[in-house]
């Protein structure tokens, strides 16, 4: 329970929730709340920053735009959508949270997410850890060679880079090539044993997309388009994303 009663202004001054409704199919059902609280009772973020999904939605509906668009709770919702799943009216609270994130000035959004998004936008690998096309190709080839020699049963195992017209284009989270390259190998072995025809690409290989978490639509789109183009340029049929 809040320690103090929330005081409302004299007249409804909301624009935030109305703007969000305009952007969502069916208005995100944002005006259909029955105030039952099923969302909050099943939300792991309930209680953080004195907030919960029902309260967040009610505050938005009451026009408390400043509170809604400034609470750091927006960054503590993982957008898991359990609230939608249990909601009798299927209200899209996570999308409301997404737009609340977007209302933050870009440079005031959490530094960790901002930094990762900006680094990913710097080159065509989309790596949030800044790994370049050359870095990635070198690590993959180096690790592969090591394993082909050390484990002769896998002497013919491949980890192709930029192989054209194969079935699967495989993404890789930056964490492995950058910090724990041996962790890439078990997946290569599985793909080898099942005879999968696959490839990495030097462009768009990084699986992560922090611009999405940042609620940076342009950055998010640019990263998805860069990755999709990489898959298409190589003529691959299926884009396998391990994230």
């Amino acid at each position: 329970m809040a320690e103090q009663a929330i005081k409302l202004g004299g007249k409804k001054q909301s624009t935030f929730i109305d703007k969000v409704k305009e952007m969502l199919p069916e208005g995100g059902n944002l005006n259909l709340c029955l105030t039952c609280g099923a969302c909050s009772s099943g939300c792991p973020a309930t209680g953080l920053e004195g907030m919960d999904p029902r309260k967040f939605l009610r505050m938005a509906a009451l026009g408390m735009d400043e509170e809604i668009t400034s609470t750091p709770w927006s960054w503590m919702c993982s957008m898991c959508q359990r609230c939608i799943y249990v909601c009798p009216m299927k209200i899209n609270i996570p999308q409301l949270v997404y737009f609340a994130r977007q209302s933050w000035p870009r440079d005031k959004r959490p530094k960790g997410i901002l930094g990762s998004c900006d680094i990913a936008l710097r080159n065509d690998t989309c790596s949030a850890m800044g790994a370049t096309e050359e870095d990635f190709q070198f690590v993959v080839e180096d690790v592969l060679e090591e394993y082909q020699e050390a484990q002769p049963e896998f002497a013919k195992m491949l980890a192709p880079v930029n192989k054209k017209n194969v079935t699967y284009y495989l993404n890789q989270n930056s964490r492995e090539p950058v910090t724990e390259p041996d962790e890439m190998v078990p997946l290569w072995k599985i793909l080898h044993l099942v005879g999968a025809d696959w490839t990495y690409g030097t462009k768009g290989w990084a699986a992560e997309n922090y611009c999405m978490f940042m609620a940076d639509d342009d950055g998010w789109r640019k990263i998805v388009e860069t990755k999709a183009k990489a898959v298409e340029d190589l003529g691959c049929k299926v884009w396998l994303n391990t994230e």
Binding site: C77, S78, G112, Y210, F213
Partner: peptide, 18 residues
């Protein structure tokens, strides 16, 4: 239930809340 690693929570700088 979601574990709380997603949505950017790991990088958002709120480890106690996470």
């Amino acid at each position: 239930f979601c574990c709380g690693g997603g949505g950017g929570f790991l990088q958002s700088g709120f480890p106690d809340q996470r």
